[in-house]
Amino acid sequence: MSRINVIIYGCGVMGRLMTKALLEKKSFKIVGAVDVDPLIIGRDLGELLSPRKKLGVRITSDAPGLFSRVKAQAVVLTTTSHLKSVLPQIEQCLKARLNVVSTCEELSYPCRRSPGLTRKIDDLARKYGVTVVGTGINPGYLMDTLPLTLTAPCLRVDSIRVKRMMDSSKRRIPFQAKVGTGLTQKEFRRRIDNKIITGHVGLLESINMIADGLGWKLDKAVEFPPVPVITRKRTKSGLGVVEPGKVVGLISRATAKSRGKDVITLEFIAHANVRKQYDEIIVKGVPNIWERIEGGVHGDIGTVAVTINTIPRAVEAAPGLVVMKDLPPAIAAS
């Protein structure tokens, strides 16, 4: 495949990481950038990087105008986790006949949570002959696509358990804030109730992708409210020292039953007192499969890589809204 021209839609932290990584690839060329932040509109995209560099790509808030001026095959969309919020942006891209690869977690497997929006996006993508896919490290890979792939040598699968264990103090500051670092237990609960803190977004999307991939009919799937992790000692974090009795992170968990039995369990554990990081997938069946990635996959690096490596698959795919389990496996792009 010849080099793919890409537009960055969303120039925040993740958009900048995507930009930096794409610049190191021979397979891609950044031809445009979109954002609504008045502080960066009109600036060269390269000015947001460290070290700064001139790319000749000006950030604009006028997405349709940009789409009409430049020749691109794909948009990397990194604006929000929620499908309703990102829908207008997806529509802009599709009407310009641009393939969309997005980090929107709810787009990774939207048919269960948002069947109406799923049909709307799929119909629009088919109408304009392009593809839409939501992906990332999870949902999109570690907690759904990879577990499904690991079942290939199994004659039977009885259950799947996935656990991500990460030291949040080694992650960027917005992530540490997102998991409640430094809050009192009362403030943590208030922010959860007001949806200021959401915990990990996408566990149910991952469960539904696994279940549908294996042909399992679920009795129910439940995502539990995030549970705060309370430190018993003074703990260093990117947000300062957290005193005993306060929150250093959280645990997000979701489970699914089929025929009365637990068949899928997903655990996302992120706090500043994690001693050993890892990603673990346990498949019970014939045979049993146990995979453990020591050190874990860094969330930002993994999301950037999976997103970029999915671009060629999206460009090559048949038109419509697709999900990762239905695409050929993404591999590292040059």
Rank of each mutant, 00 (worst) to 15 (best):
V75N: 10
R16F: 01
P115K: 02
T103I: 15
S61K: 12
P287T: 05
S85Y: 06
V76P: 03
I197D: 02
L250I: 00
G285T: 05
V323I: 06
T131S: 12
E105Q: 15
G10C: 05
K54F: 07
V70Y: 03
A211N: 14
R253V: 01
V75E: 10
R275S: 09
V323W: 09
K246A: 00
K325Y: 01
V229P: 02
G65Q: 06
R58A: 09
L266Q: 12
S169G: 02
A21G: 08
I293A: 09
G302D: 03
A33E: 11
S237K: 13
I196E: 13
S334V: 07
L22G: 11
S334T: 03
A152R: 08
R43W: 01
I59C: 06
D158Q: 10
V229C: 06
A211Q: 13
P319S: 09
T118S: 14
I196S: 07
T118I: 06
D44R: 10
I331D: 03
T151E: 03
P312W: 07
L150F: 03
V248E: 04
V70I: 05
G46M: 07
V34R: 11
P226H: 04
G199T: 03
D144H: 04
G202C: 01
S168K: 02
M324K: 11
G215T: 12
W216V: 15
P328I: 11
S102W: 07
Y141R: 08
K127N: 09
F28S: 14
L87V: 00
I4T: 13
V263T: 10
I282D: 10
E316P: 13
L94D: 12
G116T: 13
I282H: 14
P139Q: 07
I121H: 09
M166D: 01
S237H: 14
N273S: 09
I281M: 05
A177R: 09
A152S: 11
T310F: 09
A21Y: 15
A272E: 08
V34Y: 11
S258F: 02
L250E: 00
Q73Y: 04
L94R: 11
G215W: 14
D167A: 05
A305M: 14
E291H: 09
I251N: 00
V322Q: 10
K25G: 10
R292K: 15
I160N: 03
A332C: 07
L214W: 13
G299Y: 04
V76R: 07
F67W: 08
G285I: 03
L155Q: 06
V157F: 07
S258A: 15
I230E: 07
I173V: 02
G296C: 12
A330S: 13
E291N: 14
I137Y: 05
G12F: 01
A330N: 11
V306K: 15
E106L: 08
K26S: 14
Y278E: 13
C111A: 08
L203N: 01
E280D: 10
I293W: 13
A333T: 11
K233I: 03
L239P: 10
I281F: 01
P244C: 07
V297K: 03
P88T: 01
V133T: 11
I197G: 02
E243C: 04
V201Y: 00
K29E: 15
L146D: 02
P312H: 04
D219Y: 14
A333E: 11
P329G: 10
S237P: 13
M324V: 06
K53F: 09
